[in-house]
Nucleic acid binder design. Structure first.
Length: 549
RNA sequence: UGGGGUGUCGCCAAGCGGUAAGGCACGGGAUUUUGAUUCCCGCAUUCGUAGGUUCAAAUCCUGCCACCCCAGCCA
């Protein structure tokens, strides 16, 4: 059989198993799953797991189930399942089936009775505190529960009464009977069912006992016929239990195999649910989908293309090393994608007026929409000879190697003419108020006429008559408040995480469609949107700037 | 001081006994109506560390060191 080339250790394992014929009985069908608990929003950390799982599905022409791991009714809701589905859809991944762990409750319950009948589980009356106390420590073994040797009949009766609602929360649990002296604490008779008189968002109050993750997850995998259960490193300690649960349930081979990989961390990126929730709850951000949030809906709102996230995951790779990837690597992937796809446009963030003294009238110039897409397509830009340029595109005292406008030098106005600065008008504070130039008609952009006039650099501009006012929003990474012990977190967030100011841009941009990303020369990628009827340019990522290095 | 993991360039990461891929970052140069992009060129005599086996070790063996995870009726 023709095996695809493995690009990471997980695929290597799968290839080896395939080669050994492990899955011949099921037609070599590889099956994986993505199992979020619907208790929060997906964030960039989840993209890695998504890419790995969907990567396996595609590579081996296998199947992938999106499974809501909803075994804790206290925290889960449809709001989250919907947002998870929406996020996955946005990324462009297509799963084969949407399933819910809660759909297996009946089957899971039946397996629990089987455990009891075969002496692999018992009902324990110890309180949560007592269970903790008898579990032992990292270095000392635990002690057996006094209820550990109840008869099968008594266990069955008690368990059925638990299910029937005879006992209050916490009164009893069902425990796996494994080994209280195991060096692996997860094997010290873990709780597999608890009583919780809490309605389930899908099951209503059909149940008052709910299975624990360590029990429900492996069995869900087995029930679905999952071949590879990919999860993060912190579950390595659970693998023996994962295997035990499936073995005692008696599923036939090939049984699912859990493989762990390192989760994604990014410098300066807050990803723990706890902090994100705090930011939302305390109003530091506008919501889970605020463009500053690392949630997928936040990233989408920010204007990050899903392709960039996939490339990022591919670049970062899959391994078991604990790692923290630098944010620059993500930014580079976003730029790479946007550079190929975003329209070019002009906007001036810190405007200063530039008047061409020898120009009169008005004309339309051709502006190339994207020099990289090969189409050569252009659009019209109106020009009246009086424009705004960016304040730092002009220098009274130019630093070395400065390529833009200075008194007495030439510069090209992008898509228009080369101009020479003759004079400058300063205000009472010595700030540049107006720049006076003359232009060279023969240097009109696209002109065939050879001109002796040269310019060192090119700058962008917005016509003074036609330019529009826009609100600009720029962002800085959200950091944990712990990282700023001496500052007030709220104040810092207000001041730094979002900067709002007004700028000038082309009417084409201000009046263009929402959610469209643009590249502005030397400043960066911005998404145009409308907020309260006002045109807003919202920062996606900056452009590289080699001048300031 | 129990158990499970991980240590290869500033950050990721290949490598699987035959003499250190690639990406990001960084430095230099060329092209450019974006100081962007593109394009060259440079960037680990060394793989946590100390020994050992071998003609040959990042890869095998042994000891040590560092870091991460586990004592929820969370997932």
């Amino acid at each position: 059989m023709q095996l695809p080339e493995a690009t990471n250790f997980i695929e290597q394992i799968i290839n080896e198993e395939l080669e050994a014929g492990k899955f011949e009985s099921r037609g070599n069908l590889i099956q994986v799953r993505f199992p979020p608990e619907p208790n929060g929003y997906l964030h960039i950390g989840h993209v890695k797991a998504l890419c790995i799982n969907f990567g396996v599905k595609e590579k081996y022409h296998g199947k992938l189930n999106l499974r809501m791991d909803d075994t804790n009714p206290a925290k889960e809701d449809y709001e989250y399942v919907n947002s998870i589905i929406e996020a996955i859809k946005w990324l462009g991944f297509e799963y084969d089936k949407l399933v819910f762990a809660s759909d297996y409750y009946d089957e899971l319950y039946a397996i629990a009775e089987k455990y009891i009948m075969e002496g692999n589980a018992y009902v324990c009356d110890l309180s949560a505190e007592e269970i903790t106390a008898t579990r032992g420590t990292l270095t000392e073994p635990g002690t057996n529960s006094p209820y550990r040797n109840r008869s099968v009949e008594e266990n069955l009766k008690l368990f059925r009464e638990m299910k029937a609602g005879k006992y209050p929360d916490g009164a009893k649990v069902l425990r796996a009977k494994i080994d209280m002296s195991s060096p692996n604490i997860n094997m010290r008779d873990p709780v597999i069912y608890r009583i919780a008189h809490v309605p389930h968002y899908r099951q209503g109050d059909k149940w008052c006992i709910y299975p624990m993750y360590d029990y429900a997850h492996p069995l869900s995998d087995a029930i679905e016929g999952i071949t590879h259960s990919l999860c993060s490193l912190e579950f390595e300690n659970h693998r023996p239990l994962y295997d035990w649960v499936i073995e005692k349930a008696g599923f036939p081979a090939p049984v699912p195999r859990q493989i762990e990989f390192a989760r994604l961390n990014i410098t300066n990126m807050l990803m723990s649910k706890r902090y994100l929730k705090k930011l939302v709850d305390e109003g530091f951000v506008r919501g889970w989908d605020d463009p500053r949030m690392p949630t997928l809906m936040g990233l989408k709102n920010r204007g990050v293309p899903p392709e960039a996230l996939k490339k990022f995951c591919a670049d970062v790779g899959v391994a078991k090393n604990y790692s923290v990837v630098s944010l620059a690597q993500l930014d580079e992937c976003i730029r790479d994608e946007l550079n190929k796809t975003a329209e070019r446009a002009m906007a001036v963030f810190d405007p200063v007026k530039l008047t061409i003294t020898n120009y009169s009238g008005e004309e339309e110039l051709d502006f190339e929409i994207n020099p990289l897409d090969g189409s050569g397509a252009t659009r019209k830009v109106k020009f009246t000879g009086t424009v705004y340029i960016d304040r730092d595109d002009f220098a009274l005292n130019p630093p070395p190697k400065y390529k833009r406008l200075t008194v007495g030098s030439n510069v090209r106005l992008k898509a228009a003419y080369i101009v020479r600065c003759d004079d400058v008008v300063l205000d009472e504070n010595g700030e540049v108020k107006e720049i006076l130039c003359t232009y060279f008609p023969e240097t009109r952009s696209g002109s065939e006429v050879k001109s002796e006039v040269k310019a060192k650099g090119v700058i962008h501009w917005v016509d003074a008559k036609y330019g529009k006012d826009v609100q600009v929003r720029r962002y800085k990474p959200l950091l944990k408040d712990e990282e700023y012990p001496d500052q007030d977190y709220a104040e810092r967030l207000d001041k730094e995480s979002e900067t709002i100011f007004y700028a000038k841009c082309e009417p084409y941009v201000a009046e263009g469609e929402d959610e469209k990303p643009y590249q502005f020369m030397r400043t960066g990628y911005y998404k145009k949107c409308t907020d309260g009827g006002e045109a807003v340019l919202s920062e996606i990522v900056t452009l590289k700037d080699n001048f300031n290095k």
